Computed example of a mutant assay.
Amino acid sequence: MFTRLFATAAITAAMITGPALAKDSYTVALDGTFAPHAMPKLDGGIEGFNVDLANEIGKRLGAEMNIVATQFSGILPGLQAGTYDFVVAPTTITEERANNLLFSEGYLNTDFQFVVKAGTPEITDLKEFNGKVIAVNKGSAYDSWARELADEIGWTVESFGSNTDAVQAVISGRAFANVAGNTVSAWAAKKNPNIETSFLYSTGKVWGMPFRKEDTELRDTVENVIECMKIDGTIAAMHEKWFGMPPAEGSVALTPLPGHGQPGFDGYAEDGHTPSC
C-alpha cells in the first residue's frame, strides 16, 4: 500500500512540475566566427543573430542557455555524442543531415553567395569559376556542395576551419572566391572594403535547428517557441538588426509551417498542431 501511495504521489508531482524534458539550462553550440550570426565582442563573449535567437528561446523556456562557440566541423558530431542538447548554429537542412538528425522547421532562408576581391569582373554563371580556387568553411553545406560540383564546374575547393579564414584566403590571393550563406557574405563585404559580393546561387534551402533523432519532444517544444517568435515579429526584428533589412514576404522568418519539422524531410511530423503563444 505504501509503495502504491508513493508511486501515485510521484506521478502527481511530475504532472505538476511539467514534462521530464524541462531543464534549468541547455548547452547549445554555434560557430563563434560566423558573422553576423555569431562573432566575438570587443569586450569578450559573442554576439550575433543566432546568439540573440538562442537567448530568446532560453528566455521563453525559462532556462539558461549555455552557448558554446566552436568550429562548425565539430558541432554536429558533438550533438550526436551528447555534448550539446541541440544546435543553434545556422545549419542547412539537407536530406543527408535529416536522415541522421531531427530538425526544427526552417527559421531563415539561405542562398549561396560568392565573395571575391573588390574590382573583380561580374560573374553571371557558375561556369565562369572554372579553374578557380573556391574557399569554404570546413564541414559546412557550402563545403559539400562545392565538392559535389568540382568535376562539373572545374573548380578546386579548399576548406578552412572558419569562414573568416576562408574569406581571408580570398583577400590574400590563396583563393579566387569564398562561398557561404548570403547573409554571411553580405556582412563580410560590408565590413571589408577589399572584397565584394559576387554571384548569388538560389537554393530554395532553409536553416533549421538540429536535435538528436530521439529528442522529438524537445524539438517540438523549441519549434513552438520559434513559431511564436515568427508570429509576434521577434525574428523579423532580429533580421533587421543584424542584416540591415526586413525578411522577404513569405519567407520562413515570417511564416510558421504546418506540423513539426521541415516539410519534405525525414523527421517531419504532420500532426496538425497550431502554435500556442
Score class of each variant (00 low, 15 high):
residue 182 N to Q: 14
residue 20 A to S: 13
residue 78 G to P: 13
residue 120 T to V: 03
residue 225 V to T: 14
residue 246 P to M: 09
residue 3 T to D: 05
residue 254 L to G: 12
residue 257 L to F: 11
residue 96 E to Y: 09
residue 24 D to Y: 11
residue 150 A to H: 01
residue 200 L to C: 11
residue 92 T to D: 05
residue 86 F to W: 15
residue 276 S to E: 13
residue 113 Q to R: 12
residue 185 S to W: 00
residue 197 T to N: 10
residue 138 K to I: 02
residue 106 G to E: 02
residue 275 P to G: 07
residue 275 P to R: 05
residue 71 Q to H: 14
residue 158 E to V: 15
residue 30 L to E: 01
residue 190 K to W: 00
residue 79 L to M: 14
residue 25 S to T: 08
residue 206 V to Y: 07
residue 68 V to N: 01
residue 56 E to I: 08
residue 239 H to Q: 10
residue 224 N to E: 15
residue 76 L to F: 07
residue 206 V to W: 00
residue 197 T to Q: 02
residue 132 K to A: 06
residue 183 T to H: 12
residue 25 S to W: 07
residue 250 G to Q: 09
residue 275 P to A: 05
residue 14 A to N: 03
residue 105 E to L: 00
residue 195 I to N: 05
residue 127 K to T: 06
residue 42 L to W: 01
residue 221 T to R: 12
residue 102 L to M: 04
residue 259 G to L: 09
residue 277 C to Q: 15
residue 156 T to M: 13
residue 116 V to D: 02
residue 8 T to F: 04
residue 10 A to W: 03
residue 153 I to W: 00
residue 161 G to E: 13
residue 241 K to E: 06
residue 189 A to L: 09
residue 198 S to M: 05
residue 46 I to P: 05
residue 61 L to G: 06
residue 187 W to P: 00
residue 171 I to G: 01
residue 271 D to V: 09
residue 187 W to G: 02
residue 23 K to A: 15
residue 110 T to R: 01
residue 166 A to R: 07
residue 47 E to R: 04
residue 61 L to D: 12
residue 67 I to A: 04
residue 62 G to P: 13
residue 5 L to G: 00
residue 35 A to T: 09
residue 211 F to R: 08
residue 225 V to D: 08
residue 91 T to A: 11
residue 32 G to D: 09
residue 172 S to W: 00
residue 54 A to M: 14
residue 28 V to W: 11
residue 36 P to N: 06
